[in-house]
Amino acid sequence: MTTDQTARPREFPSQQQEPPGSTAAMTPVPDHGESTYQGSGKLTGLRTLITGGDSGIGRAVALAFAREGADVAITYLPEEQDDADATMELVRSAGRAGFAYAADLRSHEACADVVARAAGELGGLDVLVNNAGYQMAREGGIESIDPDRLDRVMKTNLYALFWMTQEALAHLKAGGCVVNCSSIQAYDPSVSLLDYASTKAAINNATVNLAAELGPRGIRVNAVAPGPIWTPLQPATQPPEKVETFGQDTPLGRAGQPAEVAPAFVFLASPRDASYVSGTVLGVTGGKPVF
């Protein structure tokens, strides 16, 4: 992967989409590591399930996992079919098995179904990545958070993590792991993302709690806390004027690309490199503090 900071965009043209957003409609299109990520066998033979694996960080993680030797199943919303197809093409072009399931994870039944399908088609499950998330920036105060929106944020970001993990434990054995997607919002919350930031703080707590509970079973639990990352969620949930300066408030002065986050997930999933790492939250924030 390139380490040249000048090669990464520092500003973006004004743009807006409807949620959940489309990768192809973004300017510029995010870098998921398509031409840069090179695997070295860190995840050889591991059977992995990634929620929200169709675009953004999820796509970059799916690509990296496949190039590291893992077989990959993903979930995606039905309206994200094109992005899911593109992710599957990347996984299969790496020579690995790939499966994609259209599912809205806001119900326990949907979570149970995709875990069962993934474990069946992969022949088991070694790694669960709880990546699916939803946010929507608001202009008003707490009064502007209506019940439907709060329900969507909480169920997508938090309930689904609990349900997916519960179901995965029927298949995860000693040596397996769970990697959750937290956020810098857990540490430095934006007022306009009160509901979203709250779920990310809860994910940090759940990660530490689960690491303590599942450690005796030999199952590791960690999280990655990305900073501002250029994904379809941004133009789909932020006002255009925010998009133009997205990420410029970081010490590195720019937003990150999904390809810059995926290696953190690879590290935490690796039974070789992270065998004694559990209960931690690894920040990939462009210099914003994670503590």
Rank of each mutant, 00 (worst) to 15 (best):
S14V: 02
Q15E: 05
Q17G: 08
Q38A: 14
G41A: 08
K42Y: 01
G53R: 03
E68G: 08
A70G: 11
L77T: 06
T87Y: 05
E89K: 13
V91Y: 00
S93V: 00
G98H: 02
Y101M: 04
Y101K: 05
A103E: 12
R106H: 00
H108W: 10
A116M: 00
A132R: 11
A132G: 11
E139C: 00
I142P: 13
P147A: 11
P147W: 05
N157C: 03
L161F: 10
W163E: 13
E167F: 06
H171E: 13
N180E: 06
S182D: 12
S183P: 13
Y187D: 14
P189L: 09
V191G: 11
D195P: 08
A197V: 04
A201K: 10
I203T: 14
N205S: 15
N209E: 14
A212M: 09
A212T: 15
L214W: 14
P216K: 00
R220G: 10
N222C: 12
A223F: 01
G227L: 09
I229V: 15
L233R: 11
P240I: 09
V243C: 08
T245G: 03
G247I: 03
D249M: 07
G253M: 12
R254D: 10
R254H: 12
A259E: 09
A259Y: 02
E260P: 12
P263N: 03
F267W: 12
S270Q: 00
R272W: 01
R272K: 14
A274V: 04
Y276M: 10
T280F: 00
G283A: 14
V284G: 08
F291G: 11
